[in-house]
Design a protein around this nucleic acid. Structure first.
Length: 259
DNA sequence: ATGACTTTCACGGAAAGA
């Protein structure tokens, strides 16, 4: 089974590149973030023509998440509810079951700056995710994937010194992310696959040739329940989709399971 | 480096991203 998570930075603007992903990699499940589309304008028809159907949470201009699956794989028990979510109207969480696995696609609050009220909203959002992961633990395999807006370790940052005093690497954010792994008994699939010493990024700023210089961050994660950890065959960052015409600023992250 | 680039809505430029 192949599962891809991708912050597309507008689903409609990215449809040609999404088609490229679906055609070339033929994933079974795709978890999307920053779809930036309303429920009315969600491209169900275009996705159907590509052989996929979707459960989504949409709010229009800014956020939005979705779970796509191959049309022959039923999507069941979809919900956009996340108990304790401080921003329930922002369409940052969608959860559904596909092929016996409970999937969540999440777009974590950015936080803006360490003294901004949205930073504290971000910490609350991470707490709500940890509680939900704890609730799901023991009820079957689970995969929580998406744009966590937190770099788990210093090695996940091209220049850790430059991030001091900014969001994404602060101790409370890292603690909040770790609590999700701990409470859900989840593993970071990238660390499971490559260990503690490998540096790979999933996001590069559009500006100043950051991608060309490979100056990025690892903020997109597959968090996989421990019962699935032994089934991880590979984890790949699909850098080619960050290149070329009208890329997202994030690369897709592909998880291959032996099941 | 105060920026760089890209998206949305809407038709100029603000807001947001990380």
């Amino acid at each position: 089974m192949r599962v891809v998570t991708w912050n597309v930075n507008s689903l409609r603007a990215r449809l040609p590149r999404l088609e490229e992903l679906l055609t070339q990699h033929q994933p079974d499940v795709v978890l999307l973030q920053e779809t930036k589309v309303s429920a009315e304008q969600f491209p169900h028809e275009e996705l159907g023509a590509l052989g996929y159907h979707a459960a989504e949470s949409s709010s229009g201009q800014w956020t939005g998440v979705a779970i796509l699956a191959r049309t022959d794989l039923p999507i069941t028990d979809a919900t956009t509810q996340l108990f304790g979510n401080p921003v329930p109207s922002e369409a940052r969480w969608v959860e559904a079951t596909v092929d016996g696995i409970r999937f969540a696609s999440v777009y974590v609050v950015n936080g803006r700056s360490l003294d901004h009220e949205m930073y504290f909203v971000k910490l609350e959002f991470l707490e709500a995710m940890a509680a939900r992961a704890g609730d799901l633990k023991g009820s079957g395999p689970m995969i929580i994937s998406g744009d966590m807006n937190v770099c788990p370790r210093d090695i996940d940052v091209w220049n850790p010194e430059a991030m001091v005093g900014h969001t994404h690497t602060s101790a409370p954010e890292r603690k909040g992310l770790q609590a999700i792994l701990d409470q859900g008994d989840l593993v970071d699939a990238h660390v499971q696959r490559y260990g503690e010493d490998a540096q790979q990024f999933t996001w590069w700023d559009y500006r100043a040739g950051m991608f060309h210089k490979n100056q990025g961050l690892r903020i997109d994660l597959h968090m996989v329940s421990r019962e699935l950890a032994g089934q991880i065959a590979d984890v790949r960052i699909l850098r080619d989709l960050r290149k070329g015409s009208k890329p997202s600023d994030h690369a897709p992250l592909e998880l291959e399971l032996t099941r």
